[in-house]
């Protein structure tokens, strides 16, 4: 029984069957990659997991509880964090504030009228956020306006914002999209470290095979909305069905 169990999930947009009967099981503390050619339904699947879309059929269970019908913020409070393809951060706020917000969200829940406390007096929260920034080597940038940072820094900040919540499951949507090779390798190292040190389960959607094969322990290949195979990286590499889906080789 995995931490995340997806059973028979289907989603239709008008005449397009974006997902049909997807089954997926993500084991606790593993790194699970979901790959597939363009239009395979990877992003649709991810959106079904975080509450942005509601699947037409099937069930999505996280730690034995259904996430279907819950709002994104409720699903986050259950312990699922999401990293976006283009980093979503609070651009007008400082780096430290960006990390403080998830700290407060974790402590106080989805809404609290803490209008007469002072941020600067929340020492515990500030310490926690600073420790997180040290971990991703951004402590020296804490007062910077986050919108003015490089894309790589924004990605690291977004990662820090997710990690500081100590999620049980981290969903990553093409975390290295548009990155140079050196940045990609840094991100791989960062993710590896996160998985090992913090014991956070990860599900990654990725195009870059280099990233997938360096990180994943299990790989699910999606094509035209249905999973083709689910196996270890070694077995996926030479799998004829995968080659067919990616390269269009007919049998």
């Amino acid at each position: 029984m995995g931490i995340l169990e997806v059973k028979g999930v289907g989603k239709r947009f008008g005449g397009l069957q974006a997902l049909g009967d997807v089954n997926l099981s993500v084991e606790e503390n593993s790194v699970h990659a979901i790959i597939g050619p363009n239009g395979a339904g990877k992003s649709t699947l991810l959106n079904c997991l975080v509450g942005k879309l509601i699947p037409d059929t099937g069930s999505v269970m996280f730690e034995g509880q259904s996430v279907l019908g819950r709002k994104p913020h409720e699903i986050n409070q259950m312990g699922i964090s999401r990293v976006f393809q283009t980093p979503e951060i609070f651009g007008d706020l400082s780096v430290l504030e960006n990390v403080l917000i998830p700290c407060f969200a974790k402590r106080d829940g989805s809404f609290r009228m803490h209008a007469f406390e002072s941020v600067s007096r929340e020492g515990e929260m500030v310490d926690k956020a600073m420790a997180m920034l040290e971990d991703v080597n951004m402590a020296d940038k804490k007062d910077m306006n986050s919108a003015s940072m490089s894309r790589g820094d924004k990605r690291r900040l977004e990662m820090a914002m997710c990690l500081v919540q100590e999620p049980k499951l981290l969903l990553l949507d093409e975390p290295t999209a548009g990155m140079a090779r050196a940045d990609t390798n840094n991100t791989i190292d960062l993710l590896k470290e996160i998985n090992e040190k913090r014991a956070i389960t990860m599900a990654i959607i990725e195009h870059d095979m280099h990233v997938v094969f360096s990180l994943a322990e299990r790989i699910t290949v999606l094509a035209q909305g249905t999973p083709l195979v689910e196996d270890t990286p070694e077995n996926i590499k030479g799998h004829p069905k995968v080659r067919e889906a990616y390269l269009g080789e007919s049998a």
Binding site: F90, G91, A105, S110
Partner: peptide, 18 residues
């Protein structure tokens, strides 16, 4: 601070559990 977060990025806010 949360109110300023609303102004800046509501998507991120939702996926941060707020």
């Amino acid at each position: 601070m949360m109110l300023r977060a609303v102004k800046t990025n509501q998507t991120r806010m939702n996926y941060t559990g707020l």
